[in-house]
Every structure is written in C-alpha cells, then in structure tokens.
C-alpha cells in the first residue's frame, strides 16, 4: 500500500517533470541545442501568468492565451537574437550561451518581479481526488492531462504535418533542408516559440502546486536526468522519463529519508543519469547517432 502511494505521488509530480522535459526535447529535436535556460522559461511563464491574472486582473480564459503568447515571444526572441547566431558553433559555446541566457533571464525577472514569494491564484477547483488514501489536489490531475495532450499534439505534429516534417529535416541536416526549400530559420524559431509555450504551461501548473518565486527555475535542472533517461530526441522518452524519475524520487524520498541522512531523493536522479551514461547513453528511446566528420 505504502509503495503504491509513493508511486502515485511520483507519477503526479513526474508529469510536471515530463512537461518541462518536453520543452527541452523539442528544442533539441529541431535544433540540436541543449537548452539550459528551460527552467528560466518555466519561471518567466509563471510570472507572466501571475501578472496577467493578478496585476492586470484578466480572467483566466484571456490571461492564459496572453501568457502563452508572451512566453512564445520570449522563446522566439531568444532564438532570433541569441541562438540563431551560434547554433552551429562548437557545443561548448551553445551550452554556454544558453547558460548565459539563463543568468540574464533570471536577472531580468529579479529586476521586474523581485525576489519575494507570490501566492499564485488557484485556477483549478479546490476539491481533491481521493486515490489510495491520498487526497490529491486536482492540479496534479490536470498537469498529467496537459502533459499527455502536449505529447500527443507534438507526436502528431512531427509525424503528420508538413511543418513538423520540416522541423525534423532541419534537425537532421540544415543545409539539405534549406536546399529543399525549407525556411530553416522560421522552423527553428517556431520550435523555440513552442518550447516557450510548453514551458509557460509547466510554470503555471508548478506555481499552482507550490509558491511562485525566483528559485522556481531550478526545476529546469530536473529535465536533464529525464532526457538522459528517455533519450534526448524522444518525446515519448521525455514523458516516460519524467514519470520514472518522479516515481524514483518519491520512493527514495519515502523509504530512505528516515534512514539515510541528507536529502537523498534530490540526488538519485543524477546518480541514475551517470548510470545511464555508462550503460545506454542514447537513453531508453533515443536514437543512436553517428558522429560525423
């Protein structure tokens, strides 16, 4: 029973990880860029949501589209003015530029919203769902729903739409895609827009689960064990990886926290990351890449 409860909790929080990882995978799939600023996009999305709901007093059905639109714009700006100029540079530069971006964005948020804690307006019904003796607030259920919807949308998008196919083409070989008449820049830009939107959704959900604060962006780090486990270019991997990491953390936190000193659940994910690198570096669902000269 206790184990089942741990697993349930793990799945509920894992769906938030999955959402964040989906944004990371999306950008990697379309541009081969590892985005270290994904957590900051999540946080900014949540702050914009807060501002439009509380400061501007918009009703949720207007505030949500506004938030997603603005977050998409921020994603686009990041691509247009920073990543576009360097996406094909050495890997170190790409990683470092997104790290620079994350520091810059965090500074910007400090400037605009400060470092206080904000209580995000509850946008989901207060009633809870009773499962296995746990009263789960509805927000967890909705984050699972959102994660699944986003996942299905993206899978559909990449498989069946021209744009999605173009994105995959761009990721595989930009020059070839360009010569086939694909507007490489608009495709890449769009993937950042989508990623910004997914991040904002994750941010709003996360802010509904806990407090809204500048340190929320740290959740972005969680995306890395998830994508290493699931595979950098696999949407399915992001979802399953997110859930698995969530469950492992919860089980470890539950069973080990009373025995082992220190917060073991925080590091198990990264220990798994190292193990995966040793035995199956492309992850559970990723494709093995051939190093080109």
């Amino acid at each position: 029973m206790l184990l089942l409860q741990f697993i349930l909790i793990g799945i509920s929080i894992g769906s938030v990880y999955a959402l964040i990882a989906l944004g990371t995978v999306l950008i990697y799939k379309a541009t081969r860029v590892i985005n270290f600023a994904q957590g900051e996009l999540v946080m900014i999305g949540a702050f914009i949501g807060y501002t439009s709901l509380v400061s501007w007093g918009l009703p949720i059905f207007i505030a949500l589209p506004v938030t997603l639109l603005l977050s998409g714009v921020i994603g686009y700006l990041a691509e247009r003015f920073v990543l576009r100029r360097i996406a094909h540079g050495p890997l170190i530069s790409v990683i470092m530029v997104t790290l620079g971006l994350s520091i810059f964005l965090k500074g910007g948020v400090t400037g605009v919203w400060g470092t206080s804690m904000y209580s995000f307006p509850k946008i989901f019904p207060e009633s809870t769902i009773n499962l296995l003796g746990i009263k789960l607030p509805q927000v967890y259920f909705w984050s699972m729903v959102v994660a699944v919807i986003i996942f299905v949308l993206f899978v559909f998008f990449f498989k069946y739409t021209d744009l999605g196919l173009a994105m995959r083409g761009v990721a595989d070989n930009q020059k070839a895609a360009a010569s086939l008449g694909v507007n490489v820049f608009s495709v890449v830009g769009l993937s950042w827009v989508f990623s910004g939107i997914v991040a904002a959704l994750g941010g709003i959900l996360l802010a509904n689960i806990s407090l809204l604060n500048i340190n929320m962006s740290d959740v972005g780090l969680k995306a890395f064990p998830v994508v290493i486990l699931g595979g950098f270019d696999s949407l399915l991997g992001a979802v399953i990886g997110g859930l698995v990491i969530g469950v492992i953390e919860s089980v470890a936190g539950g069973y080990l926290a009373t025995i082992v000193s220190g917060a073991i659940d925080q590091v198990v994910a990264f220990a798994i990351l190292l193990i995966i690198l040793l035995i199956k570096p492309q992850g559970l669902f990723g494709t093995k890449e051939v190093e080109r000269l």
């Binding site: 689960i209 969680k222 919860s250 917060a263 659940d265």
Partner: peptide, 14 residues
Amino acid sequence: SYPMKATDLTSQLL
C-alpha cells in the same frame, strides 16, 4: 531531511 528546493514532499509525509 529533504532537498531545499523540493517540489514535492508527500513521500516524506507518508
């Protein structure tokens, strides 16, 4: 003990 920046503490509370 739990992580300073924990997102979820349900298992500890169980």
